[in-house]
Amino acid sequence: MSLTGKKLLIIGLLVIVLFVPPLVIEMGTATMNLLVLLFIFIILSQSWNLIGGYTGQINLGLAAFFGCGLLVTHFVWKAEIPIYFAVIAGGLAAVVLAVIIGLPTLRLKGAYFAIGTFALAEVCRIVVGNMFARMVKMPGSYAIDYSIIPRYYLGLIVAIITVALVYCVTHSKMGLALVAIRDDEQAAQVTGVNTFKYKVYALLTSSFLAGLAGGVYAFLRLSFHNITAVFSPIWTFEPLMAVVIGGAGTLIGPIIGSVFLVVLSEIFALTLGEAHLIIFGLLFILVVMYSPYGIIGSVGRIRQMMSRVGRGTLKARQKL
């Protein structure tokens, strides 16, 4: 629960490193864009991590919450309300959506929950696709004073809030309940955990975060040529991949996974083209099959092995 001084120092340094550079040096729009996208991925993957990694409910409908937050933010912002409020409105809209579609689906267990949320996200995609047949875009005045810097800070702030929120949730009584539900729902229920209540809380928090991510994306991109694209399952699957590759059910895992996915895909997309997605898919399968705790888990295991090897040589030396 308590943060040691060393940890606090590292976090403080990180925050400074992230906050200051854009003010001091010109990094170029491409890099900044990539960083904002990275923040969005971190928010989304933390959101999925909360419901999928900690609570063990595989939610395949994240895209619906993301898209809902995006649409609401877009239109609230269009009504000339400051973007910060618009983003919060987007998050709250995603919560409302979660109440409507999440409460019924949470009664489903295991794979049925996954299928139910997947189907509901598709329903949202179809309905939204029919409602907004034309391009959704901001009026020209918004494009004139477009600058990437405020996008960067909004993304950064929301990402920090997200990580802090997930940290607080998982280090509270609720976090214990969530992990108990993941490990054995029946046992948790028997020991007096109101599993349904906590699952609802987890879903609502998770969808709020996904809605915020949608808001940041709405701020980043002013026009959406094809609005169904933001509801497409890709927005569920890529965060899921980031979480699993990084390490589900840990705080750092999804961040590492997002960095890994966004940065490597940027590098590989230039050199390998489509093939980089195949590599990611294979990597994902290998991680799921052989290292269920992701990169984080493997680091821990390697460290363990190293220390064992170290002790082994020590013993060998003593024998000599």
Binding site: G56, I58, G110, A111, A114, F237, L240, M241, V244, G273, E274, A275, L277, I278, F280, G281, L282, F284, I285, V288, M289, P292
Partner: peptide, 22 residues
Amino acid sequence: RIDTSMLVTFGLIWVLDNAMTM
């Protein structure tokens, strides 16, 4: 088993989809 097979085959979608596209 259900959950893990779901994740493994999900990775397979990624591989096959993109392989077929290529």
